[in-house]
């Protein structure tokens, strides 16, 4: 704002000499400057920095050493990250299409409200809540204990496993996914549904054959956005951990920065994560937008 004012003041002082188009341009540039510089300095510049630094070793030469080290150390974790994000996305889409379809056909405002809650629960809180809920001695096992389903000395642990991670990611993203999917389904004209219903189609057929194809664009958007958000999520995997030694890529990246202080490898992992999210976006553009 200050910049804008000074630009304006400077412009006013010289209006006699300078044509008004330049004055306007200066004012506009002044208005844009603060926001552009914040995003430019603290996002775009570091983003470019991570690209160039990923190719550089400590002695300043440009090589692929960081990448080969990243692949050597973390090839397993890369597949694990893709697998967890893919599985969570699949479950999320299935759940949100079914739920969104049912809510489109029959209003249930309580259920709709309930599924909006995860939207407002911060990522770290989801991580902690799921840990408390699903840990071997957590509240879920405690609550099920009186049913006598299993031996108190050998309780199943969901929290520190792939299943716990997937569950937490799906839980956090369901609010967002349902919001978009339901929005798209509400946009489908009632006459289509009535026509199919008159032909004897049940709820499931209505969802599968009418709502799903007509809401494909929005579902594609949900898929791309949540896939990259799950792949790039840090706090939930950091809190849920993993029992069999596998980790999500962002946790590895954090480990490289904080404990190893190997920024080269960390940046190589970062660039790989950019490529995956870009790949998801391009795949979406080709498959969904074109069709």
């Amino acid at each position: 704002m200050n910049n804008a004012q000074t630009a304006r003041a400077a412009g006013k002082a010289r209006t006699a000499k300078i044509p008004s188009s330049i004055w306007k341009w200066l004012a506009g540039a002044g208005i844009a400057a603060p926001a552009v510089s914040i995003v430019g300095i603290f996002f775009v510049y570091p983003f470019i920095q991570s690209l160039t630094e990923s190719f550089r070793t400590e002695d300043g030469t440009y090589t692929l050493a960081n990448y080969s080290k990243a692949f050597r150390l973390y090839a397993g974790d890369m597949w694990f990250t893709l697998w967890v994000s893919g599985l969570s996305l699949g479950l999320l889409l299935l759940l949100s299409v079914l739920l969104g379809g049912l809510l489109r056909l029959k209003t249930a405002s309580l259920v709709e409200f309930l599924f909006k809650i995860p939207l407002f629960v911060p990522f770290v809180v989801v991580g902690h809540a799921m840990r408390v809920f699903l840990a071997p001695h957590g509240t879920l096992n405690s609550a099920l204990m009186p049913l006598g389903l299993y031996d108190p000395d050998q309780v199943p642990s969901i929290a520190f496993s792939t299943a716990g991670l997937v569950l937490a990611l799906v839980w956090k993203n369901i609010g967002f996914a349902l919001l978009l999917v339901l929005g798209a389904f509400r946009g489908v004209d009632n006459s289509y549904l009535e026509a199919a219903r008159n032909q004897g189609a049940g709820s499931f057929r209505l969802i599968k054959d009418i709502l799903l194809p007509m809401g494909r664009g929005s579902i594609g958007v949900v898929a791309v956005l949540t896939f990259s958000s799950m792949m790039g999520s840090f706090s939930i995997p950091a809190m849920m951990g993993s029992a069999d030694g596998k980790q999500m890529l962002m946790v590895d990246l954090y480990y490289q920065i904080v404990y190893q202080q190997d920024y080269g490898v960390a940046n190589a992992l970062g660039v790989i994560s950019y490529l995956v999210s870009m790949g998801a976006a391009i795949y979406y553009m080709k498959k969904v937008v074109k069709a």
Partner: peptide, 24 residues
Amino acid sequence: ILLLLFLLPQAFPQLPVFSNAMVL
């Protein structure tokens, strides 16, 4: 270009970028 600039932080994972912002 401006609108795209403001889309960028939504499109990529935050942690790798913020760790370089931390160096800065």
